[in-house]
Write a protein that binds this DNA or RNA. Structure first.
Lengths: 153, 153
DNA sequence: AAATATACTACTATATTAGTAGGAATTAAA
DNA sequence: TTTAATTCCTACTAATATAGTAGTATATTT
């Protein structure tokens, strides 16, 4: 499971992506309210995202956060990794949280690891081709679909 | 990430599957040593697996645990679910650990959820078609491969 | 100078996971 | 029938990670 921190980070970045045209900073308090994220917690998260170079900030009374890259350049896999959410199901197949199984003398011949590796690759394949923009696009498509269904009733 | 409990359960079941022909019970202490699992912890895990109907047990001095189903009938996805390891990356797409996002008024139109759903489906597709027997088969294939590589040197 | 924002450090509270202790019940064999 | 070896079961404990908060410093605009 992803951490809440990771989920909040994605939601916050999506909020910035939705108004990306203007590229003016959005306040933490605004993001927090829009996305129902605890304000102080979001503060810490945004700071971390800035340190990782995903967002920029402006201090002072007209300050806030903004995306540094374009929404189509920010990949879900990247956000998940940066915020500490491991994608792999076992440490022995994780790139960022690697740890060997003490009981595996040679992990190259572990059948379980082999399967879990396959799962990881399938997951990463999806997550690394999906950008913030893609997610917004899905949002639109889904809401159109449900609207169409409603009018049919 | 899967819990250690889940990993241990899979390893223990694999140990039973490797000697399935004989179908005679294997002692917890033997499994624990073979797979480097803390003995007392494994005891609790095997008990749980029995309650879920994956293994049977025999008490007394010649006792131990044995598989109730054939190794090709026990699917990885099943073991993971029974031992409490969620497969989905977010609770809102989990079958067994479902919880709605408080901030999503209508989760049907959540773009993030939509992607994570896709990841879950890709993972489950692999895990639910992979049995204990399949894993043993991979083991053999992998160890042959590495042996072949060694003799080439 | 006042108001309002982020930056940053240092906590705390809670939940989950991992693992242990100790003894009861069962079985087989001496 | 006693003994030894096993599973069964309840109830703990310890360690760790996550989620979230408090308080203050620093920067910016008006």
């Amino acid at each position: 499971m992803l951490q809440k921190k990771t989920k909040y980070a994605i939601k916050a970045l999506l909020a910035l992506a939705r108004e990306y045209k203007e590229n003016k900073p959005m306040k933490i308090s605004v993001i927090a309210e829009k996305e129902a994220i605890p304000r102080k917690f979001l503060e810490a998260i945004m700071l971390e995202l800035r340190h990782h170079g995903l967002v920029g900030s402006k201090m002072g009374s007209t300050g806030g956060y903004y995306l540094i890259k374009h929404p189509e350049e920010i990949m879900l896999s990247n956000v998940i990794r940066l915020t500490g959410g491991p994608i792999a199901l076992l440490p022995c197949v994780s790139l960022n949280f690697y740890e060997p199984c003490i009981e595996c003398l040679n992990e190259e011949i572990c059948g379980l690891r082999n399967v879990i590796l396959e799962v990881r690759e399938a997951s990463i394949k999806i997550l690394s081709k999906t950008s913030l923009k893609d997610i917004l696009f899905r949002e639109n498509k889904l809401s159109k679909k449900t609207k169409a269904l409603k009018t049919m009733k």
